[in-house]
């Protein structure tokens, strides 16, 4: 099992230290590669795309690692619930339905790309909150972000366990 990958704690700390070190406002520093969303539709479309990529990773891992199936099933159930809630949010905000999901090739079962996909989805939520412009939507997506950040922490613990096993 490939378990390499940058741990997210360092990049979060880097961002927060950068935030603390300079005046904010218009000069808000962004993490490298950060998305700057202009609307709720952009945020939700990005989340749908990243969630689909993550789901492909999870599906591959669940198929390849029997001991991970309970965890994978739990995480995918959370994703389905989030997707349903996002559909309701789109209706509330008067937005079009989600873009059609691309048919993705089967992912290789590996922890590093799984972690990268999970982190990208967490960051899309965090970076998307300011663009939503609706406190109810912020509240719902913040709750999703909390669950997804928990999944990310679980994946980090899994990677750490694999590394300790050598």
């Amino acid at each position: 099992m490939d378990s390499t990958g940058e741990h997210g704690g360092a990049s979060r700390r880097t961002l927060l230290r950068a935030l603390a070190a300079v005046p904010l406002g218009l000069s808000l520093p962004r993490r490298a590669g950060a998305a700057e969303y202009g609307s709720a539709a952009e945020v939700l479309d990005a989340i749908e795309r990243l969630a689909a990529a993550l789901d492909a990773q999870l599906e591959a891992l669940g198929a390849a690692v029997p001991s991970a199936r309970a965890l994978v099933a739990s995480l995918r159930a959370d994703h389905r619930r989030h997707r349903d809630e996002r559909a309701r949010l789109r209706r509330r905000l008067g937005l079009a339905g989600p873009p059609l999901a691309e048919r993705r090739p089967a992912a290789a079962p590996s922890l590093a790309p799984l972690r990268a996909a999970q982190e990208a989805l967490v960051y899309a939520h965090a970076e998307g909150l300011p663009a939503l412009g609706d406190p109810f939507a912020v509240d719902r997506l913040a709750h999703h972000m909390v669950e997804l950040a928990r999944h990310l922490a679980i994946i980090d613990l899994w990677i750490q366990t694999e590394e300790e096993r050598g």
Binding site: R12, L28, A126, E127, P130, M145, L152, A153, I154
Partner: peptide, 18 residues
């Protein structure tokens, strides 16, 4: 700007708790 910073703080808090 504060909403963005608070979101990243919250991600850290979830990691600690988990």
């Amino acid at each position: 700007d504060y909403l963005l910073a608070a979101a990243f703080v919250l991600v850290d808090e979830v990691r600690h708790l988990t």
